Simulated assay, not measured.
Amino acid sequence: MGKFEAAGGSSFVPVVFTNSSQRACFVRAYPGVAAVDESGVQIAQAERTLGSILGGAKEVSTITLAPGQSASAGVGGVDVPLGDATDCVQPVGLFVTPPDTRTSTEVRGEVPPLCGGLTVHPVVAGSSGGHLAN
């Protein structure tokens, strides 16, 4: 995962995929992303969306990765309680499934709190997840 960012009630963290093979590969569309608790139990599934206030891809495209290059997808959330809620659930990591694969990997680190859902955006070239500040 990349650097966690938050502003204006929204939060964002890029999930980075690096080509570790000796030949070019392609990634397209959305990874599967789910939030997990301390026990490694899935507590929320990310909704696939285009962009957000903090960035993220505005369209789905195919990214070609040479050996060693990276692509990333932004994962976002609302970081303040909504409606009558008074608190949020804080995941400790994510289950991430790269696009066009079926194997998930648990990644621990700072992730958006669950105050109003979790979103994932399509992959983009580089490691920013399409974050507007990068």
Score class of each variant (00 low, 15 high):
Leu118Glu: 03
Val36Phe: 03
Pro14Tyr: 02
Val107Asn: 00
Thr64Lys: 12
Thr49Val: 15
Gln45Trp: 13
Ala125Arg: 14
Val120Gly: 10
His131Val: 09
Thr119Arg: 12
Asp84Pro: 13
Val123Asn: 11
Val124His: 04
Gly76Val: 02
Thr64Leu: 07
Ser61Tyr: 00
Val92Phe: 11
Ser61Val: 06
Arg28Trp: 08
Pro99Arg: 04
Phe4Glu: 04
Gly93Pro: 06
Ser20Cys: 09
Thr62Glu: 12
Ser20Ala: 11
Phe4Val: 03
Ile63Glu: 09
Glu106Met: 08
Phe17Asp: 04
Ala7Val: 03
Gly40His: 01
Val96Thr: 09
Pro122Cys: 09
Ala6Pro: 00
Gly74Phe: 11
Leu54Asp: 01
Ile43Asp: 11
Thr119Tyr: 03
Ala125Pro: 13
Arg108Asp: 00
Ala24Phe: 06
Thr105Lys: 01
Leu50Thr: 07
Thr101Val: 04
Asn19Arg: 02
His121Phe: 06
Leu132Met: 13
Gly40Val: 02
Leu132His: 15
Val96Trp: 12
Ala66Ile: 00
Leu54Met: 14
Arg108Thr: 02
Ala57Thr: 07
Arg108Gly: 00
Ile53Leu: 13
His131Ala: 15
Val78Phe: 12
Thr119Ile: 13
Ala34Gln: 12
Gly51Phe: 12
Val16Met: 00
Asn134Asp: 15
Val107Cys: 01
Pro67Asn: 06
Ser104Asp: 06
Glu59Thr: 08
Thr86Cys: 07
Ala125Lys: 15
Glu106His: 00
Ser127Glu: 15
Pro31Glu: 05
Ala46Glu: 13
Thr49Glu: 15
Ala57Gln: 10
